Lab assay of single mutants.
Amino acid sequence: TKVFYNGTYVEFNNPEKAKKYAEKVAKKVGGTFTEKNGQFHVE
């Protein structure tokens, strides 16, 4: 499961961990995250 952010991504074996990371990054940058095709995108 990949989490895309700012033109790069971090890959996780565990979708649950990926979601938590996406939430954390989104919170940090004051943005939101969306799930597309089983991957997370932070905006």
Score class of each variant (00 low, 15 high):
residue 5 Y to R: 03
residue 1 T to Y: 15
residue 15 P to K: 15
residue 21 Y to D: 01
residue 32 T to H: 11
residue 3 V to F: 02
residue 27 K to S: 10
residue 5 Y to W: 10
residue 36 K to G: 05
residue 38 G to P: 00
residue 16 E to L: 11
residue 27 K to L: 13
residue 4 F to C: 07
residue 26 A to E: 00
residue 22 A to C: 05
residue 21 Y to E: 03
residue 5 Y to G: 01
residue 16 E to F: 09
residue 36 K to F: 10
residue 33 F to H: 04
residue 18 A to R: 00
residue 3 V to H: 00
residue 36 K to I: 14
residue 7 G to F: 06
residue 11 E to I: 13
residue 1 T to C: 12
residue 34 T to I: 14
residue 24 K to H: 14
residue 15 P to V: 13
residue 14 N to E: 10
residue 20 K to F: 08
residue 25 V to F: 12
residue 6 N to A: 10
residue 10 V to W: 13
residue 1 T to P: 06
residue 19 K to M: 09
residue 30 G to I: 03
residue 40 F to Y: 13
residue 28 K to W: 14
residue 6 N to L: 12
residue 10 V to C: 13
residue 25 V to K: 07
residue 34 T to H: 13
residue 20 K to C: 08
residue 4 F to S: 03
residue 3 V to Q: 00
residue 31 G to D: 02
residue 43 E to G: 09
residue 1 T to G: 04
residue 15 P to Q: 10
residue 34 T to M: 10
residue 13 N to W: 10
residue 28 K to Q: 14
residue 4 F to N: 03
residue 37 N to C: 11
residue 24 K to N: 11
residue 27 K to H: 11
residue 36 K to T: 09
residue 29 V to D: 04
residue 34 T to Y: 15
residue 32 T to A: 07
residue 40 F to I: 08
residue 38 G to N: 06
residue 6 N to Y: 10
residue 9 Y to D: 03
residue 5 Y to E: 02
residue 21 Y to H: 08
residue 37 N to T: 04
residue 18 A to L: 00
residue 12 F to Q: 01
residue 2 K to R: 12
residue 22 A to Y: 02
residue 2 K to L: 10
residue 2 K to P: 04
residue 14 N to I: 06
residue 2 K to S: 05
residue 20 K to Q: 14
residue 21 Y to F: 13
residue 23 E to L: 09
residue 12 F to C: 07
residue 31 G to S: 06
residue 13 N to K: 13
residue 11 E to Y: 12
residue 40 F to Q: 02
residue 40 F to H: 02
residue 17 K to H: 14
residue 3 V to I: 03
residue 5 Y to Q: 03
residue 3 V to P: 00
residue 14 N to G: 06
residue 16 E to K: 10
residue 21 Y to K: 00
residue 11 E to K: 09
residue 41 H to K: 05
residue 19 K to E: 06
residue 35 E to R: 06
residue 19 K to R: 15
residue 21 Y to R: 02
residue 33 F to V: 15
residue 12 F to I: 03
residue 20 K to D: 13
residue 31 G to A: 09
residue 9 Y to V: 13
residue 33 F to Q: 03
residue 43 E to C: 10
residue 6 N to G: 11
residue 22 A to H: 00
residue 34 T to K: 11
residue 39 Q to W: 07
residue 18 A to G: 04
residue 15 P to R: 15
residue 27 K to C: 10
residue 42 V to M: 03
residue 28 K to F: 13
residue 25 V to I: 15
residue 37 N to H: 09
residue 18 A to H: 01
residue 37 N to F: 09
residue 10 V to F: 09
residue 2 K to G: 09
residue 33 F to A: 09
residue 23 E to S: 08
residue 14 N to S: 14
residue 7 G to C: 10
residue 18 A to N: 00
residue 43 E to M: 14
residue 26 A to R: 01
residue 4 F to H: 07
residue 11 E to C: 13
residue 39 Q to F: 07
residue 5 Y to C: 09
residue 4 F to W: 15
residue 9 Y to N: 04
residue 32 T to E: 06
residue 16 E to V: 10
residue 18 A to E: 01
residue 22 A to G: 03
residue 34 T to N: 07
residue 24 K to I: 12
residue 15 P to F: 15
residue 21 Y to N: 02
residue 30 G to P: 01
residue 16 E to Y: 09
residue 6 N to M: 12
residue 9 Y to E: 07
residue 40 F to R: 00
residue 6 N to E: 08
residue 42 V to R: 00
residue 8 T to F: 13
residue 24 K to G: 09
residue 18 A to C: 03
residue 22 A to I: 01
residue 1 T to L: 06
residue 22 A to Q: 01
residue 15 P to D: 05
residue 19 K to A: 09
residue 42 V to Y: 03
residue 43 E to I: 15
residue 31 G to P: 01
residue 23 E to C: 09
residue 32 T to C: 11
residue 39 Q to H: 15
residue 9 Y to Q: 06
residue 17 K to I: 14
residue 12 F to S: 01
residue 17 K to A: 15
residue 43 E to D: 09
residue 4 F to G: 02
residue 31 G to R: 03
residue 13 N to I: 11
residue 11 E to L: 12
residue 1 T to W: 15
residue 12 F to M: 03
residue 2 K to H: 05
residue 6 N to S: 07
residue 10 V to G: 02
residue 6 N to K: 12
residue 25 V to P: 01
residue 30 G to D: 06
residue 6 N to W: 07
residue 42 V to W: 04
residue 17 K to R: 12
residue 25 V to H: 05
residue 42 V to D: 01
residue 3 V to N: 00
residue 26 A to W: 03
residue 8 T to L: 10
residue 31 G to W: 04
residue 18 A to T: 00
residue 43 E to H: 14
residue 24 K to E: 15
residue 5 Y to S: 03
residue 13 N to A: 14
residue 5 Y to P: 01
residue 43 E to Y: 15
residue 23 E to R: 08
residue 18 A to S: 02
residue 1 T to K: 05
residue 17 K to Q: 15
residue 43 E to K: 10
residue 5 Y to H: 08
residue 7 G to L: 05
residue 39 Q to L: 06
residue 15 P to N: 08
residue 42 V to K: 01
residue 36 K to P: 01
residue 19 K to L: 10
residue 8 T to S: 12
residue 3 V to M: 02
residue 33 F to D: 02
residue 9 Y to T: 08
residue 31 G to H: 04
residue 40 F to D: 02
residue 2 K to T: 06
residue 29 V to A: 06
residue 28 K to I: 14
residue 31 G to N: 03
residue 17 K to G: 09
residue 24 K to M: 15
residue 28 K to L: 15
residue 28 K to D: 13
residue 39 Q to R: 04
residue 21 Y to L: 03
residue 23 E to N: 06
residue 26 A to H: 03
residue 38 G to F: 04
residue 35 E to H: 07
residue 16 E to A: 11
residue 29 V to R: 05
residue 7 G to R: 05
residue 42 V to A: 01
residue 29 V to L: 12
residue 28 K to T: 11
residue 35 E to S: 07
residue 17 K to L: 15
residue 2 K to D: 01
residue 9 Y to H: 07
residue 43 E to S: 13
residue 18 A to I: 00
residue 12 F to K: 02
residue 27 K to R: 11
residue 3 V to Y: 00
residue 11 E to A: 11
residue 37 N to K: 07
residue 32 T to G: 05
residue 39 Q to P: 00
residue 8 T to I: 11
residue 13 N to Y: 10
residue 12 F to Y: 03
residue 23 E to F: 06
residue 37 N to Q: 09
residue 6 N to H: 10
residue 20 K to G: 07
residue 29 V to W: 09
residue 34 T to F: 15
residue 15 P to T: 10
residue 41 H to I: 13
residue 20 K to L: 13
residue 27 K to A: 12
residue 1 T to A: 08
residue 41 H to N: 06
residue 43 E to W: 14
residue 3 V to K: 00
residue 1 T to D: 02
residue 12 F to G: 00
residue 40 F to N: 02
residue 30 G to A: 06
residue 23 E to I: 11
residue 41 H to D: 04
residue 15 P to L: 11
residue 17 K to C: 14
